[in-house]
Simulated assay, not measured.
Amino acid sequence: MNRKRNLYISIAAASLSALLVYGLYVLQLRQIRFEETISVVVPKRFVAAGERLTADMLSRKQIARASYAPEMLDNPEVVIGMEAVVPLGSGEPLLDWKVDRYRLLPDRRQSTFQIPKPYVLSISNGIRAGDRVVLYVSGPEAESRRLFGEAVTVASVKTSANVEIDNVSNPNLLSLANGDREQMYASRRDANGMIDFINLNLTEEQWLQLDALCKEGESKLVIAYSPESLDIGPAKKEAEITP
């Protein structure tokens, strides 16, 4: 009887030891997996270019540490309030060059130039501050062609009275007076109206080339909005400044 009881005790002890070893194995495996992954910021849904990111649009996702890249963002608080430069896919790790806070500002290489009205042949309807546009040159004496290889950023659009097209419900000047830079920027993004003047962020070389072509009046600009304008890569982002 005692031998049978000892046998049962031995079996129970062996079973408990096996369970303990297995439990430790599972914990160690989880720890290893945790150490091999890293948390990054991802959108919960598709985000269109130009849309401003809010806290409820973002979440965290664990990815393999081997897949992590330095440009991936890991802090949602840094991203909140920024604007999507390109469309963002749901669950796609957010890269720093895909978002920006003040896209209207020129980068280190650029200045903001108001394009003289006589230089312009046509402007696409619906262009707003923050959009990127493609410039073409058209003239009777020369073949029409694209002016620059890359799209350029629209800093602002103005009416015939040279007044910036504004958002009636959230005037830009009121936000400026209140020192609310976020709302001032948002009002420029949401503005709509008939475009008569347009300001572009250009490098000095781009402006001089544009001015040389158009100042005699023989060639004029066609300013077009194009999906190609959303193709912005890391090289462009490296040149930008965070205000």
Results as ranks from 00 to 15, higher is better:
23 G>N: 12
145 R>H: 13
131 D>H: 11
225 Y>M: 06
146 R>Y: 00
151 A>G: 07
24 L>K: 13
77 E>W: 12
50 G>D: 03
96 D>F: 03
231 D>E: 10
124 S>I: 01
152 V>Q: 06
75 N>F: 06
162 N>R: 14
150 E>T: 15
122 S>L: 04
155 A>E: 06
206 Q>K: 15
108 R>H: 13
170 N>S: 11
146 R>E: 05
148 F>G: 01
67 S>T: 11
10 S>K: 04
153 T>R: 09
123 I>A: 04
234 P>D: 01
192 N>Y: 11
99 V>S: 02
140 P>R: 00
186 A>L: 13
181 R>M: 12
181 R>I: 14
176 L>K: 10
64 A>P: 04
218 E>C: 06
5 R>K: 15
118 P>N: 05
241 I>S: 13
110 Q>R: 07
10 S>N: 08
156 S>W: 10
161 A>R: 14
41 V>A: 01
186 A>T: 12
152 V>L: 04
120 V>E: 00
57 M>K: 09
28 Q>I: 15
83 E>C: 13
118 P>R: 00
46 F>H: 12
72 M>I: 04
106 P>V: 05
221 L>H: 02
203 T>Y: 07
114 Q>M: 15
174 L>P: 00
214 C>Q: 02
45 R>S: 14
102 Y>W: 14
15 S>N: 03
129 A>C: 10
106 P>M: 08
239 A>H: 14
64 A>W: 12
237 K>L: 02
158 K>G: 09
59 S>M: 12
127 I>P: 00
208 L>Y: 07
219 S>H: 09
5 R>Y: 12
20 L>A: 15
14 A>C: 07
208 L>Q: 13
53 L>M: 08
116 P>I: 08
26 V>R: 11
159 T>F: 01
206 Q>E: 12
153 T>D: 00
